[in-house]
Simulated scan of single mutants.
Amino acid sequence: MDNNIVRMLTTVHPWNEVTCSIRQKPQKTSTNAVLVQKAFGDHNRAAFFIPIAIDDYSYYMGGVDIADQCRAGFTTYQCALCNWLVFFYFFLDISSSNTHILINLTRTKQLNQLLNSGQLR
């Protein structure tokens, strides 16, 4: 918890794997400054154990934000009374935006680089 509570759902990372991360002390005007600044004490930086899912999100945050923007711009969302139908539209939006990204990758050399590096299987 840097500035606020974070909730996350992942199918890639195990729930019990952590990594050590160095964090900077937040400003006094941040949301949870009173709670967070106690953990830092007098230091401006401190090392904390954080879940790997949070660390990966922080590292790849720009890509997630761009994907959310792409999905929000061309949504198929419809109001639905069934909970499963909302999930269906959400996953339909994600799959269509991922398809758009992959089509754009085929036009560049990035796809060949990803295939050669083993990141795409």
Rank of each mutant, 00 (worst) to 15 (best):
Asp2His: 15
Asn3His: 05
Val6Thr: 14
Val6Arg: 11
Arg7Glu: 10
Met8Pro: 02
Val12Asp: 11
Val12Leu: 14
Pro14Ser: 00
Asn16Thr: 13
Asn16Met: 08
Cys20Lys: 11
Ile22Gln: 08
Thr29Leu: 04
Asn32Trp: 12
Asn32Val: 05
Ala33Met: 00
Ala33Phe: 03
Val34Ser: 07
Val36Asn: 06
Val36Ile: 14
Gln37Asp: 01
Lys38Asp: 01
Lys38Cys: 02
Phe40His: 05
Phe40Pro: 01
Phe40Gln: 02
Phe40Ser: 01
Gly41Arg: 05
His43Leu: 10
His43Val: 07
Arg45Thr: 12
Phe48Ile: 00
Phe49Tyr: 08
Ile50Val: 09
Ile50Ser: 03
Asp55Trp: 03
Asp56Arg: 12
Tyr57Ile: 02
Ser58Phe: 05
Tyr60Ile: 10
Met61Leu: 11
Gly63Thr: 09
Val64Cys: 00
Asp65Lys: 14
Ala67Met: 15
Gln69His: 14
Arg71Leu: 08
Gly73Ile: 04
Gly73Ser: 12
Phe74Asn: 11
Thr75Ser: 08
Thr76Pro: 09
Leu81His: 09
Leu81Lys: 14
Trp84Arg: 12
Leu85Asn: 04
Val86Leu: 10
Val86Met: 05
Phe87Glu: 12
Phe88Arg: 06
Tyr89Cys: 04
Tyr89Gly: 01
Phe90Tyr: 15
Phe91Pro: 00
Ile94Arg: 05
Ile94Ala: 10
Ile94Thr: 11
Ser95Thr: 11
Asn98Phe: 12
Ile101Tyr: 06
Ile103Phe: 09
Leu105Lys: 04
Arg107Met: 06
Thr108Ile: 02
Thr108Lys: 08
Thr108Ser: 09
Lys109Trp: 10
Lys109Ser: 11
Leu111Gln: 04
Leu111Lys: 03
Leu114Phe: 04
Gln119Ile: 10
Gln119Tyr: 13
Gln119Pro: 02
Leu120Thr: 02
Arg121Phe: 07
